[in-house]
Amino acid sequence: MLNYMGSVITLWVAGAAFAGSGEGGIPRGNWPLGIESGPTYGDSDDLTDEAIALGRSLFFDVRLSRDSSLSCASCHRPQFALSDSTPISPGIMGGTGIRNTPTIVNRILGRTQFWDGRAASLELQALGPLFNASEMGMTRELLIERISQDPDYVRQFGTIYGSRPSVELAAKALASFEASLLSGDSPFDRFEWGGDVLALSEAAQRGLRLFRGKARCSTCHVGTNFTDERFHATGAGQDEGKKDPGRMSVTGDERDFGKFKTPTLRNVALSAPYMHDGSMRTLEEVVDFYDRGGNESRHLDLEMRPLLLTAEERKDIKQFLLSLSGAVVSVPASEIVRIRKSD
């Protein structure tokens, strides 16, 4: 049973919203323009449309929280590109998480999940908030009980996985849905991949050049998903006595203190506030932060340095960032396979 269906997620319909040739007659599959094909880090070799549909149902189901008040979509909200609009999302019964909700779009292109990369797979990521007492507060037993009470779910688990509901299969279904969520076809993509020189404003084009040049954004925000999937210490959130260890909490390596995974910049216009702690409310704050070289941090990334951007340049960069907004779509399993195998 679905309690909520996000209106922003477009359900991909056979017939291909994005089919046809890309620029230069290069055949592309039916996935958003700008998503590069090639090996993906997502797992779930047995990805199917049925699993994606089941995962979607679970994703929006508030019964997957202890007090039946929250679903995954309560924090990964479609209207905010599957992120949230608050610095730290509230959990059940007054609880809160510890970090800003990251988007789960294009995560099939990702290497690890969460700001600290503690989940090596989308399945592990899906289970994290479910069993976090401050977030959704479930237990393994309660999760199975809730799912099993719904005959539709029981039937779907049986059909798809040949089994009764289990925690692992629920995670697999959720991961299938998350893997299907892609975003591209932004004005930037149409400019760069589609050859549409009018798709980007002059200011955004200047911003793009700055992004790859003087502003050094492409040091970390690279590739079609604008992230190197690595961990860096920029000093964000370190200026108010906060001591979030970041990646160090996973590796135990003191040199990883304060390092967080580079997030995607796709749909960044929708995912404010920014940084792992949601401490920056606007893109202007973010650009200013990098312009001054970040904050002091125990292991500040060597690539952080003052950029000496002019006011006009900062505005141009913002215009470019705004051009990275594209619809979020849920693509069929067959297209994910093609993304992985296509050349």
Binding site: G24, E192, G223, N225, T227, E229
Partner: peptide, 10 residues
């Protein structure tokens, strides 16, 4: 002017 591929090699 036209991107043909854009790959991230980690």
């Amino acid at each position: 002017s036209t991107t043909i591929f854009n790959i991230t090699i980690l």
